[in-house]
Amino acid sequence: MSDAPVVELPVVELPVVELPVVELIDVQKWYGAFHVLKDVNLSVKKGEKVVVCGPSGSGKSTMIRCVNRLEEHQAGRILVNNIELADDLKAIDAIRKDVGMVFQSFNLFPHLTVLQNLTLAPTWVKHVPKKEAEDLAMQLLERVRIPDQAKKFPGQLSGGQQQRVAIARALAMKPSIMLFDEPTSALDPEMVKEVLDVMIELAGEGMTMICVTHEMGFARAVADTMVFMAEGRVIEMAPPEQFFSDPKSERTRQFLGQIIGH
């Protein structure tokens, strides 16, 4: 927040030129000899919700983990907020501050209370004063509907509650982009909804989201773009209406048949 005087500018209707906030260009990645990502191209605009699906081993998790450099890509370019992800540690830090991530296995810090899980990164990375960080944390816990669990340890919560804490923890850094890596896959069926509800709410607030999931109901409800990956390639990319009713590729049709068909 700068203290520069606020200059009232005339409101001009500009033609909407939406720059992508996340852009993957011809990304390649290998694990040893195994080619995990092949020529992956993806462009996500501000506020866009992208749902990525595909069979296991298709590289979808690897792809979103490249976006905040939990995995390194070996060729091609990845740009986040127009900053290129390369070996520059400063750039990586800057990107990570602005990109929140939710994992399949929650990865909460078991030795800290729920509240401490939420305040840790803001206080140590952004140097937010303790009181302010705690206030924000409580607001977020309200938002994910578990303010009464603030003093508990993660191990004392149910899976659904833990995942909601994990979402709140990521939001505590006030990111502009959220990555979800199969957020409901490790949950018992009855807890999936409480997590998806929080995610749908978040989508409604205009957050840019890239979400790897097989929850097709959720995808229909929030996705602007559906991405189908198989064997390390993006096979199909389409708006959900078209994706679900009239997929172009045989591979996509097969996959959708398998997960929706019964």
């Binding site: 990570r96 929140g100 991530m101 810090f109 990375v125 990521a170």
Partner: peptide, 14 residues
Amino acid sequence: PRGQEEAADALGLP
């Protein structure tokens, strides 16, 4: 677990 470090990395902790 590796996930602990990944979570810390994702939050931007040096």
